[in-house]
Design a protein around this nucleic acid. Structure first.
Lengths: 338, 338
DNA sequence: CAACATTGCTCAATCGATGAAGCAACAATT
DNA sequence: AATTGTTGCTTCATCGATTGAGCAATGTTG
């Protein structure tokens, strides 16, 4: 409306001068506790009006410096390229905002150094809480948070030094594997061990899912083939080349698979399509994670959907109550009807 | 390491006392310009060591309050649930960080009120730039930014009051439509106008894509059927019910479509699968946006991939040079080989 | 050895918002 | 009339980091 050329930003002192009053009164009016501070309605209205005319915007830096709580809450997340993390981020933002918190999120690309750097930066911004999602070294981040007097919490992947909210990977994997094994039996009339593809052999989730994978095989009395557990990383290319390598050394690959994320599934499907290994004999697939298009791929793809809302409910319950018990909370994933 | 109970956060004054020096020296050492301020190497080392021991973290609020530039750069984005926006956000973060800027991003769910609120909040945090991605009312945000002395820029959807970086929607759409029309001809041996599904009839991108759609039909001498332009919104459900409604009123739908985003494509594919309208006669489809799984869906889906890197290169070129010409920069989208 | 330069620091004001304490003006009570 | 209470503000210190100005202690030069 006015001051189109940004001379300097308008401060409460400018407004005070325009209103013929003190900065203190302006501050009280604009941050809403002017009743407590016995400012008259007339003055309050006048100040509000002038503030609007001037396009005044609070300087949060100054405000936060003075206040005790920042109400900033940070989250680090590995990637934005799949529905699971996208949904986590979106839900997190909404829930944070509805609590009057200001969420800041940063993507650290599964890079330990970036994670630490991002954590430090967020602490500089006085985050009250830092949620480490799928962090490669969550305990290191917890240490840094503790040193800086901030709370921390692990999501998706657990840590030993802070509360962790994760999926029930073992249970989910066992059930998913069971379903795929049964589906295999229905489709091919026989039983056979599945191929496990994707994930990092070093991360908790993958280990638990492999454990569930084994348990389901055992439940049905099927022996797992150890050479068929390919924890080759999450990236599509890794899954793709890993399958290619296996196919090169074996005549025929199993016609049932457990794929450890939609990211890996991307590579798996690409390989299936380009290699023609399975032409006319599409395998049954179970995927630990959900994607709407993958659901439409046809064939027999069963997906587990991690309960993002449930996980974040747990996260915010901890934040709301400030409880700091150092436990692992497991949330059962959901089985989406094909 | 120490102070596990967060008493108060360590400040430069605490460090100064521990080091037997002044806060001023501590500040100079920690922010790196101690050479200019002629602090001895010994003192610098001592302070650095003590700061590390104490797990000191700069209070950015205090620092920013004093400095002239915040180096904070904000972005608002409609959703995180597709690869296009996910990629925009990730690329934006990386490019911002590599320039020493601190990116803050917020998702506004295509809600005009949320957009404005988010913009105001970001301005409070002293963002130097605010990138409105796919905003429903970009000019309103530009006004707010101007009033607060911040720069603004539109991405994906253009505005009239600030530089806009968008895809070449007309050109991309025309080429995509042309390809689908030719593919239709190859597959079915005849020509026929396509169905246009998805997007908002009120947004610039959709209008331009419809224009390209018409142009391509005209190029090949095919008449567009006006009842077959369904700008029903982006949501999958909208596309789905829109198709269902059309199918209810017409015996047979066109066997070629232009789908205006992967989000809409999700609904289209679901409808195709559940309605059995096209069973055994899969249509040829062109989608304005890319998704890795959609690419694997089989059938004849051609996708245009918006050139996210190219768009953000343009965005940061503007930011880096500080140029403020009020123009629309169009970036040609990429055609991904099926 | 006086004059001046350099080194290595400290002091104090400042950024903008906040809120405890205080103060003038008037009203109500005894 | 004197005391107390209330209203409606202002003053000022403060949050933590930054930085121009300044100052003592050395080093250098003619």
């Amino acid at each position: 409306m006015n001051q189109d050329r940004q001379t300097k930003k308008t401060t409460i002192y400018d407004l005070a001068e325009l209103a013929g009053t003190s900065a203190s009164a302006v501050s009280a009016v604009l941050n809403g506790n002017w009743k407590k501070r016995r400012i008259s309605v007339q003055l309050a209205d006048k100040i509000t009006k002038i503030a609007e005319e001037q396009g005044y915007a609070l300087n949060m830096q100054a405000s936060l410096l003075r206040r005790d709580r920042s109400k900033i809450i940070g989250m680090i997340v590995p990637k934005y390229d799949n529905r699971y993390f996208g949904s986590i981020v979106e839900t997190f933002e909404n829930m944070a905002r509805s609590r009057g918190l200001f969420p800041i999120i940063t993507c650290t690309r599964r890079d330990p150094e970036l994670e630490v750097e991002a954590a430090r930066t967020m602490l500089s911004y006085q985050v009250e809480w830092l949620i480490s999602t799928g962090a490669t070294d969550p305990d290191r981040i917890t240490d840094i948070c503790n040193a800086a007097g901030a709370h921390s919490l692990n999501l998706d992947l657990p840590g030993a030094k802070a509360v962790s909210v994760i999926s029930d990977n073992f249970g989910g994997s066992r059930e998913l594997t069971r379903r795929v094994l049964l589906s295999y039996q229905r489709k091919f009339g026989s039983t056979s061990p599945l191929l496990f593809v994707g994930g990092r052999g070093s991360d908790h989730n993958t280990l638990e899912r492999v454990r569930g994978f084994r348990a389901a095989h055992e439940d049905l009395g099927i022996a797992v083939d150890e050479r068929h557990i390919l924890a080759c990383g999450y990236a599509p290319e890794k899954a793709e080349s890993s399958l290619a390598a296996l196919a090169a050394s074996e005549r025929e690959l199993p016609r049932g698979m457990f794929v450890n994320s939609t990211i890996s599934l991307e590579g798996v499907m690409r390989w299936i399509k380009t290699s023609h290994h399975y032409d006319n004999r599409t395998p049954v697939i179970g995927c630990f994670d959900w994607d709407p298009f993958a659901a439409l791929l046809g064939g027999d793809i069963e997906m587990v959907r991690q309960d993002v809302q449930g996980m974040l409910d747990a996260v915010f319950e901890i934040i709301d109550t400030g409880s700091s018990a150092n436990t692992v909370i497991q949330i059962a994933p959901l089985f989406v009807s094909a």
